[in-house]
Design a protein around this nucleic acid. Structure first.
Lengths: 339, 339
DNA sequence: ATGATAAAGGCGAACGTTCGCCTAGAAAGA
DNA sequence: TCTTTCTAGGCGAACGTTCGCCTTTATCAT
C-alpha cells in the first residue's frame, strides 16, 4: 500500500505549505496558525509520515548510534549477561533517541582498526566498552582520539575516563562476612589470575572481610587460575585433600562456573555441600537456583549497569559533563542452600 | 589529531582531481591513469579517509541495516541463544556490508507499531524475526507490507515466507530412538502447551520414533505445560508416583530447564538418574555439562541459523530470490551420563 | 497617517555521497 | 585533412532533512 516512502514534501503538498514549514512545525520550532497546524497534522496522519532517520542524521552530522561489541564466549561458557545488558542499553538508548550498534569483535590489532573505522565512517557517536581490563588498548586509543566512550568496568587507576562498574569487592566482602557470621574461619577463595582487574577487585573484598574479622589469611587459601569448571574442581579437590585441621569449611568462588566445579569436587569427595562445606559463587547465573543444592551467589545489577552506561555516554556525546562521571553499583548476596 | 571528518572533497583536493572522480575510482567504476590512481590512493591513506556511511546510505535510499528484536527472558531464565545467534548475525552481516540493528521488544499492539515505524523512518532494510509462533502478527504484517524479512522458526503452514529453522522433530526423534535403542519402552515426554509451534514440532519427533518402534503411545506419557523448572519437576514427580509397572524408565524434556526440574524430582524420590531413570533435555544449555550427572541434550546449530537468516534476508533485500527459500538445520544429540 | 513590531510562513543552502551525462584532448581510421 | 572513437576526468543534480534568514501581512502605539 504505502510502499513508497513518504517525505516532508508529500506532507507539505497535502497541507498546502512549504516542506520546510512542516519540518519546523513538527520539531516545534515555529508558531503557525491553528488551522495550518491541524492541516499538517492531518496530512502526517493520513500519509503515515515518519522523518527519514538517515537524512536527519546526515543533516545533523552524526549517527545517533552507540557502538557496542562483546567477546563471544567459548562454547560451554554462558553469557547470561548479554541479554540483560544489551536489552537494557537498547531500551534506554531508545528513550533518548539513540540506537545501539553491535559490531563484530576482533582480537588483536584488528580490534582497534575496527573502532577507528567506525569513527571515521561516522557510524557511531560513541562506544560502550565491556570486558575491560588493565591497559585496555581500546581505552588508550579512544582517550587519544578524544572520542566519547563509557567503559563497563574499570581499568588503570591513573586513566581518567567515564565508567560504570559493579563493586566486586563489596560483593565478595558481603559473602565472606556472611560466612564468618555463620561461624566459618577457614575460608578459601577460588580467584583469578593476577592480570584480571575484575578478579583482583573481587579478591580484595575477601581480604578485607578476613582482616576486619581478624582472621589471619592462611596462605594456601587463595588459589588463582582461569575461571573454568575444571580449574574450580581441581582447586577444590586440592583443598579437600588437605589435612583435616587445615581443610577449609567454606569456599568462595569468583564466578559460578568455578563454584559448580567446587560442587562437583565436593561430591566426589563425599563432602555434603551446605553442611560440611559452604560454597558461594559470583554472578548468580540463571542455573544457580536449580543446582543441587541451589547455589548461593552474588547477583549483579546488570540491567542497571546497561542503563547507566547509556546515560553517561549520551551525556558525553552531547557535550554535557556526566554527573557523576563514575558509577559503582552494589551487588547483592543471594543465599541459597549451598551455604 | 584527525578529529575533523575527512570527506571526498578533502581527498580530491589533495590528489588534484574532482571529488566525484575520487568516488568513482574508489568504487572501481572508472578507469584512470595509473599515476592519478596512485595520487588518490596516497591521499586516502594519508588522510585516513573512510566513506561516510550515512551519506552513502542517504544516496542509496536505504540503510543497510537488519532489524532484530528478541523477547527478553524473565530473570531466572537463560538466553544462551542470544549470544551465539546475534554474534553470528553481526559477523555475517558485516561480511556483506550490513549491520544488525537491535530494537526494543514491545508486547501487544505496540509491537507492530514498532515495526511500522522502523520501516517508515527508513531505519532498516529488512527484519529477522525470532520467537516465531502460529499466527505471528509480525509475519502477517510484513507479508501485507511486502517488506523483506526472514523468520527464525516456522509459523502457519499456509503462509509463504522465507524461514530458517532447526528441525525440532528430528532432534527429539533422534533422542527417543537412542532411548529405545538402549532398551527403554516406557518413555514419557515433558511437552509444551498446544499453542507452541516449536513444542509441537519437537513432540512430533517423539511420536514418530515411538510409532516407528511399534510402541503403543501410553496416553499418560505426554504431559504438557510451561517449560519451567517447576513444571518439569511437578510432571516428573507425578510420573514417578505412578504404580511401578506404569512408571516410565526414561523422560524426554523439550528443554533443559524442564529436564533439570525432572532431575530434581528424581533426586527427591531417591531415583538414580542415568540408571533408574534416563533423562534427556533439549537446547544443550551451557550448564548441562556441569550438572550432576551431566545432562544429555539436543544441541542446536544456532550460529549456523544466524548466518543463514542473514544470508536469506540480504538476498531478499537486494531483490534476489534466495535459494533455497527455506532452511531446515539438523540438531545433534549429545549423550552424557544422564541417559 | 506613520513607523515599529510581531506573527506566519517561504526560500536557498548545506550535509557527503553516487549517478548520469558531458567534454577536452589524443589516437585512429578513412 | 576530417571525422570518429577512445580515454580520462569534470560537472550538475539528487537523496530528505534542518537551519538561518528573508518576506509578507496584520497589529499596534504614536
Amino acid at each position: 500500500m504505502t510502499a513508497t516512502k513518504v517525505t516532508l514534501k508529500d506532507v507539505a503538498a497535502r497541507a498546502g505549505v512549504s516542506y520546510q514549514t512542516v519540518s519546523k512545525v513538527l520539531n516545534g520550532e515555529m508558531q503557525v496558525a491553528p488551522e495550518t497546524m491541524e492541516r499538517i497534522q492531518a496530512a502526517v496522519q493520513e500519509l503515515g509520515y515518519r522523518p527519514n532517520r538517515i537524512a536527519r542524521n546526515m543533516r545533523a552530522g552524526r549517527s545517533f548510534m552507540i557502538g557496542y561489541s562483546w567477546t563471544q564466549t567459548e562454547p560451554g561458557q554462558v553469557n547470561h549477561i548479554l541479554d540483560q545488558f544489551l536489552s537494557s542499553m537498547v531500551r534506554e538508548a531508545g528513550v533518548v533517541g539513540y540506537y545501539v550498534l553491535p559490531f563484530p569483535f576482533h582480537e588483536g590489532k584488528a580490534q582497534i582498526e575496527t573502532y577507528r573505522d567506525l569513527i571515521r565512517s561516522g557510524n557511531v557517536d560513541g562506544f560502550v566498552l565491556s570486558s575491560v581490563n588493565y591497559n585496555d588498548p581500546r581505552i588508550q586509543f579512544l582517550l587519544k582520539q578524544k572520542f566519547p566512550f563509557v567503559a563497563f568496568g574499570r581499568s588503570n587507576p591513573d586513566w581518567d575516563f567515564a565508567w560504570v562498574d559493579i563493586d566486586g569487592a563489596a560483593g565478595t566482602r558481603q559473602a565472606v562476612e556472611y560466612l564468618i557470621g555463620r561461624g566459618h574461619r577457614r575460608i578459601a577463595i577460588l580467584a583469578w589470575p593476577e592480570d584480571s582487574r575484575v578478579g583482583n577487585d573481587r579478591l580484595q573484598g575477601y581480604l578485607e572481610a578476613m582482616q576486619a574479622a581478624h582472621i589471619a589469611p592462611e596462605p594456601g587459601y587463595v588459589l588463582r587460575g582461569e575461571g573454568t569448571f575444571e580449574v574450580g574442581r581441581a582447586m577444590t579437590l586440592h583443598l579437600l585433600d588437605l589435612p583435616a585441621e587445615r581443610r577449609p569449611t567454606a569456599i568462595m568462588a569468583l564466578n559460578d562456573t568455578m563454584a559448580i566445579g567446587a560442587m562437583a569436587a565436593a561430591r566426589e569427595r563425599g563432602v555434603t555441600i551446605g553442611t560440611d562445606l559452604a560454597i558461594i559463587g559470583f554472578d548468580d547465573a540463571p542455573m544457580a537456583q536449580y543446582l543441587f543444592p541451589p547455589l548461593s551467589s552474588v547477583r549483579q545489577p546488570i540491567a542497571e549497569a546497561g542503563r547507566k552506561c547509556v546515560e553517561l555516554l549520551v551525556a558525553l556525546v552531547e557535550g554535557r559533563e556526566p554527573e557523576p562521571r563514575h558509577v559503582l553499583l552494589q551487588p547483592s548476596l543471594i543465599i541459597r542452600a549451598s551455604s
